[in-house]
Amino acid sequence: MNYDLFDELTNTPAQPEEIEPGVALLRGAASHLASDIHQQLGAILNISPFRHMFTPGGRRMAVATTSCGPYGWISDQKGYRYHSVDPLTEQPWPAMPVSWIHLAHESALLAGFPDFQPDSCLINRYQTDTQLSLHQDKDERDFKHPIVSVSLGLSAQFLLGGMRREDATIKILLMHGDVLVWGNQSRLRFHGISRIQAGYHPVLGDCRINLTFRCAN
């Protein structure tokens, strides 16, 4: 098992913390890659910039998004779905950096999900006072694959619910460099992000960036 993404600072692999069955938190697993990710993100945004999509009901989303990889996640009046072309540029989405793929694969492996090879990375930008309501990630073709979520910049309270929207939630503090992985019986749990509190991060400034890796197709 290759732990090289996680041992550069401590010389030991990140140890997953089981939050719930199928939900694992790897504290700080991406911290040492943050500067590189930030630079690579700049190149991605030059091709496919952040935008505020609209829900099928016509509501403007508070969280700005873009994507990279073979498939990008989009939302409009036709619904939620993945597409190989960025509707803003009418060009393919930017390529997913190899180091990002490796980070997602190794994180999933440490959390107990071998052979995870993402074909989509949804990139969300949360600014002060933005939040993400409870939802399920269910636009993917096959739910056997986990979700790998990388947090950068400002901290956030991740809300982990149950299989119904009305189920109780637990709060998980996600800090810069944390990686959260969920799958198996927890793959379709409702989840969201509480309102982002004002602050400043030396790498990302006054926002939170979230990379969500998925097997879309």
Score class of each variant (00 low, 15 high):
Ser133Trp: 02
Met53Leu: 15
Ile47Gly: 01
Arg125Asn: 00
Trp100Phe: 13
Val85Glu: 11
Asp86Phe: 03
Gln131Ala: 14
Leu103Asp: 02
Cys121Val: 03
Leu134Ala: 14
Leu88Glu: 07
Leu41Gln: 10
Asn124Met: 06
Glu106Gly: 04
Glu90Cys: 12
Leu103Ser: 02
Gly42Met: 02
Asp76Gln: 12
Ser120Thr: 05
Gly58Val: 10
Thr65Gly: 13
Asn46Val: 00
Ile123Pro: 00
Val63Gln: 14
Thr66Ser: 14
Ala95Leu: 13
Leu134Phe: 08
Val63Cys: 13
Leu33Val: 10
Gly72Gln: 05
Met61Asp: 04
Phe50Val: 05
Arg59Trp: 04
His52Ala: 09
Glu140Arg: 05
Leu132Tyr: 09
Gln136Pro: 06
Cys121Lys: 02
Ser48Ala: 14
Val85Gly: 09
Arg51Gly: 00
Tyr71Val: 06
Gln117Met: 06
Gly57Lys: 03
Asp139Cys: 04
Leu41Glu: 10
Asp139Ser: 09
Leu110Pro: 03
Trp93Phe: 12
Gly79Gln: 10
Leu109Ser: 03
Cys68Lys: 05
Ile123Asn: 00
Cys68Leu: 14
Gly112Lys: 06
Asn124Ser: 04
His83Arg: 12
Arg60His: 01
Asp119Trp: 03
Ile37Val: 11
Cys121Tyr: 01
His38Met: 05
Leu132Ile: 08
Ser107Ala: 15
Val85His: 11
Pro49Arg: 02
His83Tyr: 13
Ala64Lys: 08
Ile47Asp: 06
Gly57Val: 03
Ala111Gln: 01
Glu140Ile: 07
Ala62Ile: 12
Leu109Lys: 09
Tyr82Phe: 15
Val85Lys: 12
Trp100Ser: 03
Arg60Cys: 09
Lys138Ser: 12
Ile44His: 08
Pro70Met: 13
Gly57Glu: 08
Ser133Phe: 07
His83Met: 12
Arg59Ser: 08
Cys68Gly: 14
Ser107Thr: 09
Ser67Val: 11
Ala43Leu: 09
Ile74Asn: 07
His105Phe: 07
Ile123Thr: 00
Gln136Cys: 10
Ala62Val: 15
Gly69Pro: 10
Thr65Met: 15
Met96Gly: 03
Val63Gly: 09
Gly69Met: 06
Leu41Asp: 11
Ala43Trp: 04
Tyr82Ser: 02
Glu106Met: 12
Arg141Ala: 15
Tyr82Val: 06
Pro94Tyr: 04
Thr66Met: 04
Pro118Trp: 01
Ala95Pro: 02
Leu41Thr: 00
Ile37Glu: 08
Val63Trp: 09
Leu45Gly: 03
Phe113Tyr: 13
Gln77Cys: 14
Leu33Ile: 07
Lys78Gly: 15
Met61Val: 06
Ala104Leu: 05
Asp129Thr: 04
Gly72Leu: 07
Gln39Gly: 14
Phe113Thr: 11
Ser107Gln: 06
Glu106Val: 07
Cys121Pro: 03
Asp137Val: 12
Ala108Phe: 03
Arg125Pro: 01
Gln40Trp: 04
Thr89Glu: 10
Trp73Tyr: 14
Phe50Arg: 00
